[in-house]
Design a binder for these strands. Structure first.
Lengths: 104, 104
DNA sequence: TTCACATATGAGAAAATGATAATATGTACA
DNA sequence: TGTACATATTATCATTTTCTCATATGTGAA
């Protein structure tokens, strides 16, 4: 997955398969999957997410940014905290497809 | 996605999210998606696949090997030709999920 | 066996990706 | 205002990925 801006300029406009590959790329990283899994049961602040996935704040913040860019998660500020939650109803389903495949 | 053998040695055994990420990685590449799409309507030989995806024989062969390793496609020899076809019933569904997301 | 064709493999370059440290920004509260 | 805490950003590095060229292997037919 490349940065959204650059990609759009380098590839052919409306390149169907690039877009699809980009979509699947979101879920092709264990850290992002852990974050998404952590959000399955409700919104959480960044610090909490860091604890759950076991990686430092910088790493989580980067991955959260990617997930936000692709509208997979959304963020809302509450005082000092920024709480993240799933932004797309279909995400749960997709993660379940992956889980089913793994559990075979 | 890394080579199957290495991966298994480097990561923790039974690492759930690595396995899931690996699964989604298969579909996170436009060339592989093009190949899979080309196989949706039936088996094809490598040369034919190259023509459809518009990439050279070496590139296709490499990607077909990956798809084979992950049991997404299967190959059968018929004389000089090797015909590839989808090996997993669920693949069609997964590609459709991706397509739906793109078409929103 | 030799030739022509179909496919696979190995090595290397270029690009993308993910993790991290260091630093910046934003917010609440004293 | 200043300080402490929460989060984001920037720069950099190591690793992984994809593509391509050159070459190897496998197959059928002459």
């Amino acid at each position: 997955m490349s940065k959204k801006g650059e990609m759009t300029e380098l590839k052919h406009e409306h390149d169907y398969y690039y877009d699809m590959a980009e979509f699947f790329s979101i879920f092709a990283d264990p850290t992002r999957l852990k974050i998404l899994h952590a959000l399955l049961d409700g919104e959480k602040c960044v610090k909490k997410i860091c604890e759950i996935v076991g990686l430092n704040q910088s790493t989580c913040s980067h991955q959260l940014k990617i997930l936000r860019q692709y509208k997979v998660v959304k963020a809302k500020r509450e005082g000092k905290f920024i709480r993240y939650s799933l932004d797309d109803e279909h995400i749960k389903d997709l993660i379940e497809v992956g889980e089913e495949h793994i559990n075979e």
